[in-house]
Design a binder for these strands. Sequence first.
DNA 1: CGGATTTGACCCGCGC
DNA 2: GCGCGGGTCAAATCCG
Length: 284
Amino acid sequence: MDPSQQYLDDNLYSEGFEIPSQYSCFDEIRDDNSVDELLLNNTFTLLTDEGSNAYLPEEYKGSTTCGEVDAEEHLLARIEKSISSPTADQSGSVKPTNNDLDTCMKSDNLANFPLMQTFTDRNGDIIPSCNNLSSTNGSIGSGRLSYEPDVSLSSPELTVNSIINCLPTRKQERPSASQQSPDPPRTPRNFKVQEGVDQVLFIVPNTTPSLKDGYQWRKYGRKQISDATNSRSYFRCAVHGCPVRKWTQSYQGFVRFYYKGRHNHPPPPIWWKLSQVIKFHQVL
DNA sequence: CGGATTTGACCCGCGC
DNA sequence: GCGCGGGTCAAATCCG
């Protein structure tokens, strides 16, 4: 069976990712040391805004927007780097010591996975960055992250968030040119920018074995997109009245998760994600 | 048996 | 205005 197809069909997609709400603050973290401090002090704030180049790769310094294709190239490069340099994430000084966190990381088999996140601007263009969870009180010892939005601090220029979440579990070859589809996957029509609506994009290798955030999702449709090898699955949050929807689509060895909306109920514990953010920082 | 998933049909938005 | 592609609905089916 085509691994991507199997991935799409797996019930694990009944549980998806948390959609980060609007960030509670936009602290400007301009150097790695300050991030280390925050992480080590468990205040855990990895934030940039649209204008911050704090963690942009060198090629994106000075720019705040780039096209989706460029962003994807960057993503693939990041994945390859992380795969080819298995010790890369050992260089960081962040070493979470909380036993629960370690247990969670191991149980979800997510240790050593890097994470990358980008924003999209109002036009839907992806802005590579290192933004991620915001947590005003997300201490490692608490067992939960807070995603309470702070409306007063939300950026009017940044209403759409995209996260690219890379979770390679084993070496994965990029498709050869002959294996690649001629066209990149189309963005879901409903994923187009809407005022005040959160949107998130994850891209994960289709070999990722387990992806859980505790949310329950109900599949409500599936569609062949563009050609017979490209299908998209449609999910809605299983909580009654919750407006959040997500789409999944496989493409070139990766699976894209498109999320739209904001949960209207408390988030579940998402320990593993916290660990990924830390790992991401280490990889960078 | 009830909840979740599948899948064909229908609806609608967008491009031409 | 029309046709096509994509999103959702809902009945059928599956599964625990």
